[in-house]
């Protein structure tokens, strides 16, 4: 900006370095902006994260390990892993199918489907959980029928899995739709004219083209599935050793004033977040390298 006012039009510049340039702010401005951003990051991200680990290890490594190995904690870890093991593959299949349909075909109701995919992002997770209670709970639509047949969904593992699946549904599809739309259908049509079947086209042409986007979607979906609190909290019933996932277990420990144990379990989730970030950065670096 300033270069436009200080440099008269059509006057040759004596030297590029000595004059302010439109694409470069003055040094002090750059330093201040960078410093503000770094300070902000330090206060709101690094410090809390460091605190999690500091608190977790406050009573030593032995106590830390004991907090994690405690039966209720182990049960929470197992349940979280089980949920992830079911929800992530299911959402990969749903997400790829939905993205494939939306990006590569024209059909009535397409915009409605696109909107519905965003629904879980639009509503509060607590409401997502409540919806399942209203549908499957004892007083819900299917409640009496479920009770008669002795099927437990709410306050049990199936409810947790359903709620988590709902909340994490958009991640894979959202990641893939713009990517697949940008790629168009020419490569698929080429494969078809060359005699490839639908499956062959998908496995040999579509999937390789979206693999990094898909991987990225899976990672985000996984992180959210492990960390989901609101929706799961509503449907879980908080039964220790049975229906507590890791985030719920952290809350219980915290409310019991067992701060160190709470932070110990929380540190596992934080580690997961860090690992996710590292993988995500690696993928972004890798995809940029290819582009």
């Amino acid at each position: 900006m300033s270069s436009l006012t200080t440099t008269p039009f059509a006057t040759p510049r004596p030297s590029a370095a000595s004059l302010p340039r439109a694409d470069r702010d003055p040094a002090w401005a750059r330093w201040i902006l960078t410093a503000v951003a770094l300070l902000f990051l330090a206060f709101f991200l690094v410090l809390p994260l460091a605190l999690v680990f500091a608190q977790a290890l406050e009573k030593g490594v032995g106590y830390y390990l004991a907090s994690i190995r405690e039966p209720d904690a182990l049960s929470a870890i197992r349940l979280t892993l089980l949920t992830v093991a079911i929800v992530v593959p299911a959402n990969v299949v749903f997400g790829v199918a939905a993205a494939w349909a939306i990006a590569k075909f024209k059909f009535p109701g397409k915009s409605l489907l696109t909107t519905l995919i965003d629904l879980p992002f639009a509503v509060s997770p607590v409401i997502s959980g409540l919806v399942y209670v209203l549908v499957f709970g004892a007083q819900g639509w299917f409640g009496p029928w479920l009770i008669r047949h002795d099927i437990r969904i709410i306050f049990a593992v199936p409810g947790i899995i359903l709620a988590t699946a709902f909340v994490t549904f958009p991640f894979v599809a959202r990641e893939l739709i713009p990517l697949m739309q940008a790629q168009g259908t020419d490569e698929e049509l080429s494969a078809v004219t060359l005699g490839a079947s639908g499956w062959q086209t998908f496995w040999r042409v579509t999937l390789p083209n979206i693999r990094w986007g898909l991987f990225y979607g899976v990672i985000l979906c996984n992180a959210r599935a492990m960390g989901e609190f609101g929706a799961v909290s509503v449907v879980s019933g908080h039964i220790r050793g049975e229906t507590n996932t890791m985030p719920l277990h952290v809350e219980i420990l915290y409310n019991d004033y067992n701060i160190v144990a709470a932070f110990a379990v929380a540190s596992l989730l934080a580690l997961l977040a860090l690992a996710t970030l590292a993988i995500k950065t690696a993928i972004e670096w890798r995809t940029r390298g290819r582009a």
């Binding site: 049509l189 080429s190 078809v192 004219t193 060359l194 005699g195 083209n209």
Partner: peptide, 20 residues
């Protein structure tokens, strides 16, 4: 008859080569 069975060679305007 579907495209795959017509025995046609089709070249797209932007070639549509398989990038990978």
């Amino acid at each position: 008859v579907p495209a795959g069975k017509r025995k046609v060679g089709f070249v797209f305007q932007h070639y549509a080569l398989f990038k990978h």
